[in-house]
Write a protein that binds this DNA or RNA. Structure first.
Length: 458
RNA sequence: GGUGGAGUGGCUGAGCGGCCCAAAGCAGCAGCCUGCAAAGCUGUAAAACCACGGGUUCAAAUCCCGUCUCCACCUCCA
């Protein structure tokens, strides 16, 4: 059976078939670059990275668009007296760094909202022409989508218009409480650089129109998958869907929503101030361990962060990496035809990564047992399977040599050789001293039967 | 009030009608390895009565009804 994905619009598993044979077009909501990322942001990006890797592994080409919302109320507020765009770029860089460290592949396109204002204006015009949007009745440059004009409004989240609370009726010139902004009129207290000349006056785009416009720009009127965090289902995705459909586009064929990272059972978020930063995480374990942890739950399950989370993940990951190193198979070659059937089925079942990890660990154990028994044929079979699996999960780099300077490497190897000499001479004092010295350099050594291997601490 | 989702061993977390007296990992314990460590490897206990109470079924963690608890979302903002 092929890949099945849970479509949150249909609220069921559906067989995934790309609209165009051989190519998958995905749009994922990226961050609003208002402050540095926390675990929740990382999970979201990672989930779609994982999906992308799996689609590629099954032979499909993937075009992934992940936007950057670089104009937004909070960006302007948090920039304070600084140039807001410069601030936004700086924050964006902290996201890019974190993505890179987590081995999240670069998207095919990573458009900035501010670079697609024309697309947004065009889409908004179309909506006005079709009678689904209007300029604010107070004469300002505010433009709203008229939710009541679109009969299927609410279809994504199965809600009825009358049950939605909405904004106070007259605020900013809207006709009804459930109408949302497509463009927001420039405010005197905001910098002029944060406003654009539109047919309705000086204004900046609302959040929802950005994604509709950029998705259309890069992927056209219909594309395969729209992804994002569960907290974006409403209003953001509901509004995107309404806008794009009202403008005559089919829009996304599948809607995917990843569950949230919680801490003590509650959503991790900026506003509640319980976000766990990258710095705090790295005290618990490596980037690889963080990635492993994020993969250890199925993407639609909440993932609860505790103090031990990353440490546990590190231990589990090292078991896998240890096996590969132990049998000396650290080469980069990977053969995806060696993926076990159970693993493939787990991934095809809406990316059941915990089950996939179980298959992986079973392979590791079988491989280790074979190694102890000197069954080199079995060892080879298992290690190839393991490498293929962790390649798919994006964890391959965990076993590859750390990138250090040649000089440093030579120094380490010399110390290890000296220690070996001391050990052979049964001069254990010297041997222990050297071990301590290596630890001082941040290097942890492990004595294997025939050799000593080392790694960088953390 | 509305809409979705969740409650499984000490912890994380799969399973969603029979293969479940419930995967995998972590932690624990034992053995192996070691100059000693660390790490590693192998094996493994337990009362997981699968939130609680009913029901359907030859068969339920899995389906149905009820109850409790928790989480997310409900529009210029995640």
């Amino acid at each position: 059976m092929g890949l099945q994905l849970f479509d949150s619009k249909e609220q069921q598993l559906r067989d995934f078939v790309p609209l165009k044979a051989g190519v998958v077009e995905m749009y994922v909501c990226g961050p609003t670059v208002q402050s540095a990322p926390h675990l929740g942001h990382l999970r979201s990006a990672l989930v779609y990275d994982l999906l992308r890797r799996w689609l590629k592994a099954t032979g499909l080409e993937v075009i992934l668009v992940r936007n950057v919302t670089d104009i937004d109320d909070k960006v302007l507020v948090n920039a304070g007296s600084r140039d807001w765009l410069e601030f936004a770029r700086e924050v964006e860089q902290t996201f890019i760094d974190a993505y890179n460290n987590l081995w999240i592949l670069e998207p095919t396109h990573a458009p900035h909202a501010t670079e697609h204002i024309d697309d947004m204006i065009a889409l908004t015009k179309k909506l006005i022409d079709r009678g689904h949007a209007y300029q604010a009745e107070d004469g300002s440059a505010n433009v709203f989508f008229h939710s009541a004009s679109w009969p299927s409004y609410g279809e994504l989240t199965n809600q009825k218009l009358e049950n939605m609370e909405g904004e106070p009726e007259s605020s900013f010139g809207r006709r009804s409480p459930q109408d949302f902004a497509l463009f927001k009129a420039h405010k005197p207290e905001e910098p002029e650089s944060a406003a654009w000349q539109t047919p309705w006056g000086l204004a900046r785009p609302g959040w929802h129109i950005e994604c509709s416009a950029m998705a259309k720009h890069f992927l056209g009127e219909a594309f395969d998958i729209h992804g994002g965090g569960l907290d974006l289902r409403f209003p953001h995705h509901e509004n995107e869907l309404a806008q794009s459909r009202a403008a005559g586009d089919h829009f996304a064929n599948f809607w995917l929503h990843n569950a949230l990272v919680t801490i003590n059972g509650s959503k991790m978020s900026k506003s509640s101030g319980n976000g766990v930063s990258v710095e705090e995480l790295l005290e618990q374990g490596s980037w690889a361990a963080i990635r492993y942890w994020l993969v250890s739950a199925q993407y639609r399950s909440n993932l609860d962060y505790t103090k031990a989370s990353i440490k546990d993940a590190q231990a589990a990951l090292e078991r896998i990496v240890g096996f590969i190193k132990r049998v000396g198979a650290t080469g980069k070659d990977v053969d995806l035809t060696k993926l076990p059937e159970d693993f493939i089925q787990a991934m095809n079942a809406d990316l059941n990564t915990p089950l996939a990890l179980a298959v992986l660990h079973e392979s590791v154990r079988a491989g280790n047992t074979a190694f102890d028994n000197g069954d080199s044929k079995e060892v080879e079979a298992q290690v190839e399977a393991v490498k293929a699996m962790i390649h798919v999960l994006g964890l391959s780099k965990a076993y590859q040599e750390p990138e250090v300077s040649k000089e440093f490497k030579a120094q380490i190897e010399e110390l290890i050789a000296k220690r070996q000499q001391a050990k052979t001479a049964k001069d254990f004092n010297t041997a222990d001293k050297i071990r301590a010295e290596l630890e001082g350099l941040g290097v942890i050594i492990k004595d294997l039967p025939n050799e000593t291997i080392w790694s960088i601490n953390g």
